[in-house]
Amino acid sequence: MSDDTILSVRGLGVEFPMGRKRFTAVDGVSFDLRRGETFSLVGESGSGKTTIGRAIMRIHPISKGEILFEGKRVSGRIDASAERLLRQRIQMIFQDPMASLNERAKIDYIVSEGLYNFRLFKDEAERRAKVEKALRDVGLIPEFASRFPHEFSGGQRQRIGIARALVMEPELLIADEPISALDVSIRSQVINLMNRLKRDRGLTYLFIAHDLSVVRFISDRIAVIYRGRLVELAGAEELFAHPLHPYTRALLSAVPLPDPEVERLKKHVAYDPSIHDYSQGKPSWSEVSSGHFVLGNECEIRGWKA
């Protein structure tokens, strides 16, 4: 683990009880987040991408592996002070800005709820100043603090959700599909805001999404997850230019491009897990080229390296 690693996920497994059996949602997932980067987890619904985000936030207990934040273990049993620190320095932005804000609370309370929980202010004036600053940082005016969520548009609500995370002065933001529910024009406003905050504050993002066109634009690195396992991890442009795993290829080919002529000629590639012959040689996580990892058995890896 190098110095610039902020979060390290090692051999993460998450299971849920399913009747008498247990359902494995996440299996053997490992990756490192570097300080100041945007790292995206991409996969279809049910692939476990949201579960990983929630496991980092300690919302779901983990069954295997460990998670390190700035070198300190934050998974499993940890003491109360470590948990407090984690809850302060890692914040989450949720998908649906309509559902994730308390309808009955004013923006002032919504944004300062974390400050109240952790007593992060000396007096009322300081709290108000912090809320004001957070609102300004996301491009809203401080007067909005006295209003209720229903008075805002979708894009503005998502800004409020971001302000609520920022007020805690986090280092890592876990954004679970933060722009999927937004319209095209508002989407670019929120993307620009997230990128500006990253530049100005050196924030690190774990971005969970299924919209690959957006992911490509904002990510430094992308990990593709299929049924709870990482199948490929590479730099954003490398992944789009040279997708290796058949599932990644299927996923990329499925994204419709805003170009009628290309679309007319396009053939979709479907992913069929049975094409892998893992009877001889179990698949392993291998580095094919610098920083480009794929899940495959020896024979497949040899093919991909060539």
Partner: peptide
């Protein structure tokens, strides 16, 4: 405002 047309590290048209 299509993200496909944006340049990384620059503002996306909004």
């Amino acid at each position: 405002s299509l993200p496909q047309l944006g340049v990384k590290g620059e503002e996306l048209y909004s």
